[in-house]
């Protein structure tokens, strides 16, 4: 990976929440200008990773470098400046429910640019066009279908032409057509604007189909990192279990019972 120019570097990050270890010395690199997929079973803290990159959460130890800057060492105002270079597509879309589609996309522009109303109108039109929803500008978020809401949220995430766009589970709960639309949108946006994209997902096929670079997280560690082809060819049993969706394997089916089990150990085998 050393040939790749790193946009984000995560170094030895240790993170615990409520006494549970989420990350144990995780290090990974997200290359500039590529689509990176971060995959892993549910509950391995994939969303947490995005929040660490955006510095909404702070790690217990370790550094997160975004474009060479340690985001956890910045002051609030500096951090807000860095965040203007980031766009994030939340799992739920997170459109502002009291604003129309148009206002949602215009909001970051009004907030962070000196553009006048006509210029904002032009940009909003462009962004909506790029996600194919120019006609939906006047709708309220409650009137949109799930797939449309996510596309509007994507248009909003790219309104400020960010250097980095993070996608939190973009494919979850989408029908196959919406999934296909999102996959091609992510790819197109990445290539046309030279954006660095991070896709967090557990949808194996969609993720592998667009990713230039793949990381698989499990049990608080990175268990595999490489190109999509490398990952597919991996013979690591954990990776294989995850890619093939096998119910039991190195990632156990049973949640560990611990010493305070409520059940009699002898009765387990029915």
């Amino acid at each position: 990976m050393s040939v790749l120019d790193a946009y984000i570097k995560i170094q030895d990050v240790h993170f615990t929440r409520g006494g549970r270890v989420i990350y144990e010395n995780v290090s990974l690199t997200i290359p500039r200008g590529k689509v990176t997929a971060v995959m892993g079973p549910s509950g391995t803290g994939k969303t947490t990773l995005l929040r660490l990159i955006a510095a909404q959460l702070a790690p217990d130890s370790g550094d997160v470098l975004v474009d060479g800057q340690n985001v956890h060492a910045l002051s609030r105002s500096e951090l807000y400046k860095v965040r203007k270079k980031m766009g994030m597509l939340f799992q739920s879309g997170a459109l502002f429910s009291d604003m129309s589609v148009y206002e949602n996309i215009a909001f970051p522009l009004e907030e962070h640019t000196q553009l006048d109303a006509a210029a904002i109108n032009k940009v909003v039109g462009q962004k909506l066009h790029s996600v194919g929803l120019r006609g939906a500008a006047g709708l309220m978020p409650s009137e949109l279908s799930g797939g449309m809401a996510r596309r509007v949220a994507l248009a909003r995430a790219i309104a400020l032409d960010p250097e980095l766009v993070m996608y939190d589970e973009p494919f979850t709960g989408q029908d196959p057509i919406s999934k296909g639309v999102l996959v091609s949108l992510i790819r197109e946006l990445n290539d046309s604007a030279n954006i660095t994209s991070v896709v967090v997902s557990h949808d194996v096929e969609e993720s592998l189909s667009i990713a230039d670079h793949v990381c698989i997280l499990a049990g608080g560690r990175v268990i595999a990192e490489g190109s999509a082809a490398q990952i597919r060819a991996s013979d690591d049993p954990q990776v294989k279990q995850f890619l093939n969706g096998e119910p039991d394997g190195p990632v156990p089916f049973h949640y560990p019972e611990g010493v305070n089990s409520m059940f009699n150990k002898d009765e387990v085998a029915l």
Binding site: R51, A54, Q56, Y80, K81, R83, K84, M86, G87, M88, F90, Q91, S92, G93, A94, L95, F96, S97, F107, P108, E111, H112, L160
Partner: peptide, 16 residues
């Protein structure tokens, strides 16, 4: 509800 639907996080991500 704004918190549950990540609207608050969304403001924060936009530097607002």
């Amino acid at each position: 509800l704004m918190k549950a639907t990540e609207q608050l996080s969304s403001y924060e991500m936009m530097g607002v």
